[in-house]
Design a protein around this nucleic acid. Sequence first.
DNA 1: TTAGATTCTGGAGTGCACTCAATGTCAAGG
DNA 2: CCTTGACATTGAGTGCACTCCAGAATCTAA
Lengths: 138, 138
Amino acid sequence: MSRGQLKVSYGIGEFSKIVDISIDTLRYYEKEKLIVPERDKSNRRSYTDRDIKWLNFIKRLKKTGMPIKNIKYYAKLRYQGDETIDERLKLLYDQRHRLEADQIELQTHINFLDAKIETYHQIKHNLQKQKSIEASSN
Amino acid sequence: MSRGQLKVSYGIGEFSKIVDISIDTLRYYEKEKLIVPERDKSNRRSYTDRDIKWLNFIKRLKKTGMPIKNIKYYAKLRYQGDETIDERLKLLYDQRHRLEADQIELQTHINFLDAKIETYHQIKHNLQKQKSIEASSN
DNA sequence: TTAGATTCTGGAGTGCACTCAATGTCAAGG
DNA sequence: CCTTGACATTGAGTGCACTCCAGAATCTAA
């Protein structure tokens, strides 16, 4: 605020639409301490622009297959401030390594499927031959 | 059997060890009709060598992220015989396409993490500068 | 002012993929 | 014959990540 950024805030409904996550899920994430918004005078959740970025990051991490437990740990570090940056970096590096491993595994699965597909084509081919033999023996 | 392969059969305990899947999970898979072994005179499950191959294939599909529902459909086709080969091929191709898509997505996640890691290094760098300024002003 | 919309909380329910527990059957070995 | 061990069934329980519901409070617009 001291830097003059106009601080906009959003109610849960509006925020839900912006980040495309259901209201119930947002409240669930809050229970899990992934994102803990401020409250206004009448106890309603008040999300900020920063929360939008944070939630999009969470969505990313989720899509990389990171379980909520881990994201939660990341969130905890984040809410603790700058002195946890190294720890957060470590988490990010770990996840990156995991994804690299996933990449390799994925390739082996694709190769496997290709092999399987090939054998099926073989089987089809053999069945075809079978049929033509039957046909010629009539 | 006409081709002279010695047909060995395994009880559920032995089979469980061979394929490295718990007995409970095997029974669960049977309930879901993924793998339906014969029974002996006293109603015990009797798995074959073919079942070992089939189960290893199931494990593969599972690892590629295919849900049990889909594998179940594949299993149903398989138990129906040769005339379902085209349909099974289609399933395999679909899954292959999914994996290709996963591969691309995975790459974007990795890129994203790299970018995030980079910004963290920037932040660290800035904090460092901050500190040295503070130090020199003393 | 008042109806309707939005939000609040606590708690129950869902779907998936197992996992475990209780109770029962059966063939083989001492 | 009787115990033991592997197997059988049914049904309940677990963990994850939501998703839904009831009842109450608060906000907004006519």
